[in-house]
Write a protein that binds this DNA or RNA. Sequence first.
RNA 1: GGGGCGAUAGCUCAAUUGGUUAGAGCACCGGCCUGUCACGCCGGAGGUUGCGGGUUCGAGCCCCGUUCGCCUCGCCA
Length: 633
Amino acid sequence: MFTRTHTCGELRASHIGQTVRLNGWVNSYRDHGNLIFIDLRDRYGVTQLVFDTDDAKNAGAADAGDKHAHTGMMGAADKLRNEDVISVEGTVRIRSGGENPKLDTGKVEVVVTSLVLLNKTENPPFLPDVIGTLPNEEVRLKYRYIDLRRPAMQKIVSTRSKALQSVRKYFVDANMFTEVETPVLYKSTPEGAREFLVPCRNVPGSFYALPQSPQLFKQILMVSGCDRYLQICRCFRDEDPRADRQAEFTQIDLEMSFVRREHIMTMMEGFVRHFWKDMLGYDVPPMQRMTYRNAMETYGIDRPDTRYGLHITDISEIAAKTDFKVFRDALAKGADRPRFNSKRGVVKAIRVPGGAEKLTRKITDGYSDLAKRFGAGGVATAKYIADPAGAKFDTGCAKFLEPIKAELVAALGLEPGDTLLFIADTYSVATKAIGELRQQVARDTNVVPKPGAEGGPWNFLWVIDFPMFEKNKDTGKWIAMHHPFTAPRDDQRDLFVSASVDDDDTIESIVSAGYDIVLNGSEIAGGSVRIHDRDVQSKVFQLLGLTPEQAKEKFSFLLEALSFGAPPHAGIAFGFDRLIMHICGTDNIRDVIAFPKTQVGADLMTRAPSAATPAQLKDLFIASTWTPEPSKA
RNA sequence: GGGGCGAUAGCUCAAUUGGUUAGAGCACCGGCCUGUCACGCCGGAGGUUGCGGGUUCGAGCCCCGUUCGCCUCGCCA
C-alpha cells in the first residue's frame, strides 16, 4: 500500500529510470500552476518530487488531472501544504532544471504518478525547516514532535542511540560487563539530593523513593559475585535544574570487583578513548591527572577548564608584607590554621595578560558583584603599566602594591599591560570566588576555545585525591564529599581509623579514593573505590553523625552484606546526557533529551505534573496540605 | 527561597522619551504562473500587546502584583 522502496535521502543518479515509492512530510512546495515541486522529507533526507500535468500523463499516471479544474492528482497536489504526510509513487529522473548541490539527492527528482495523502496537517505553529531564528523554547517544548522533526534534532536523537550501542560494545562485548537492571521503586535514604517520593498503596503511610543513583544496589551486586556491572539507568534528583542538569537524567553506571583505583581508572580511560574514537573518530591522548588540591589552588574549582591559562596564585605570604586593609583583614581570619585549611585567611590573585586594555572599568566593577555572589567582599584590581621610570602599578589598589612589587612580578610573571585581580578571604570563600572570577575573565577576554565538537581541544582530565569529608555550612555537620560509601585512599586508612569524631582538622585532611573525569571544565564522570569493610563503613557513618541505631535503620542491609564476604570493589558513573552534549556540541541538556522538562519540572507537551483525583489520593491514603495563596491584589 | 533577562498576529520581530486605526517577513486563505529549490506576482484574513490592578486626558511603552519560559545563586551525598 504505502510500503516505501527507498528513503528520502537515498536516491542518486544510479536510480534514474526506476519506479520508486517514497513516504514523508511535505518540507516545502513550489507551485508553478501546471508544474508543482514538493520537497519530501523524512529522517534520512529530502527528495524533490515533481507534479507536471504533461509529464504525469506521459509517465502513465492513471489520473493525472488538471490543476485548474482541481481534478485528479494535480488538483490534490495543488492542495498540499507544509507538513502534510504523503506517500508517492513515481519515476526517478535527472533534474532538467539543473541539480541542487545543497541536497544529497540533488541530482535527481521523482516524477509522481500516484499521490496518497496519508494525513492532512493543521497549520503548524512552526516548521521543521527553520530559516533564521528558532522559535522560543516554550513553543519548541509544547510541540516537541514538530521540533524533533528538525534534522538537527533527528541527528542528536540518532547520535544518542548510536552512543548507547557504543557503550555496550565496549563494556559488554569487549570487557565482560554484565548489564543488570535495578529497582526504580527504591528505599528512601534522605542523605544527599532531595528525593522524589512514591506512595505505597499496600502499606499506608509509607513511601518508596526514586533512586538518585543505583549506588547501593550495584555494590550489593559486587557482593553477589556479579564482578563487572553496567547499567544505563535513569536517576532522579529533585533539585532545581541548570543548563546541563535535569531532575531526571541518565547515567552510565559501572562497578568492578577485585580492583583498586588504578585498575578502574585504566578501564574507564579506555572507555573514553573507545567512545570518542567510535563517535567522532578522535583519538583521546593519555589523560592528565590533577589532585583536587592542585585543581582548587590553580583553578579554584574541582572541575578545571584547562583549555586556557589565567592560573590562580596564592600570594598570602607576599600580601602580608603590605599594609592594605583588605589583605590584612582577610589574613587575620584563621591565621593559626594549617596551610590548606578551609578557614585559613588567604589572598589569591589572577594575572590577566593584556588586561589593562581588555578589561574596562565597567567590566572590573562587575567582578566585585560576581565575587560578592560567592560570599567574598569584592575584587581588588590594579594595572601594571609601562613607565619611563620602570613599569609600575596604576589605578585600583596600586599604591598598596608598590612595596611588594618585585615579589609580585616574580611570583606572577607580570608584564607591562597586565591587570591583576585579587580576592582576599578565607581559603574556601576566596578559592571558590576567584575560581568563578577566572571563568568570567576567560569569557570576557575571549580566551575560551570553541567546544571540541567545533574543532576546539578536548581537554580530558582525571581529578583525584578528593577530601573524604566537607563541612555542611548550615548544620555544621560533616558530610561525605562524594558519598558515604567512598573509601579512604589506601594510604589514608590508618589516619582515618584513628580520627576522633571531634578532630575537625584531621577529618578535613583525610583523602578519599575518589576520582572524577573532567572535560573542558565539565564533570562527565565521578566515582570511587568503595568501602568493603564493615568496620570502616561504620566509622564513616559515625563521623557523619549517625548513631549506630540510625546507621542500622538506614543501612543495615549494606552493613550485613559487607560482613558476608564483600570483595574489594570500585565504580564510577558517567553523566550520559552530558557526554552527548559534548559529542553534539550543545550547551543545553534539553537538546539531547527527547522529552525534557522545564525549570520547574514541567513537561509542556503532556502538561505533567498534574493534580491527582480525590479517588487516587484516597487509595494512597494521601491528603494534600497545599492551599492556593490568597491573592494580595 | 534569592538575583537577572524575557513575553506584541500561528512563528520571528518592529512600533520615535506616553500620542491617529499596533506594522513587516514567514506561515495561512483566495487567484495567477511549466523548471523551481528561501520560486515569483496579485489580493485577503489574522491582535484581550501573557494575566490582574494602578498612574494618566491618553499605556504595548511608566508603577505594583502575578503567571510562564530561560540563565543563575542556594541546592545537586
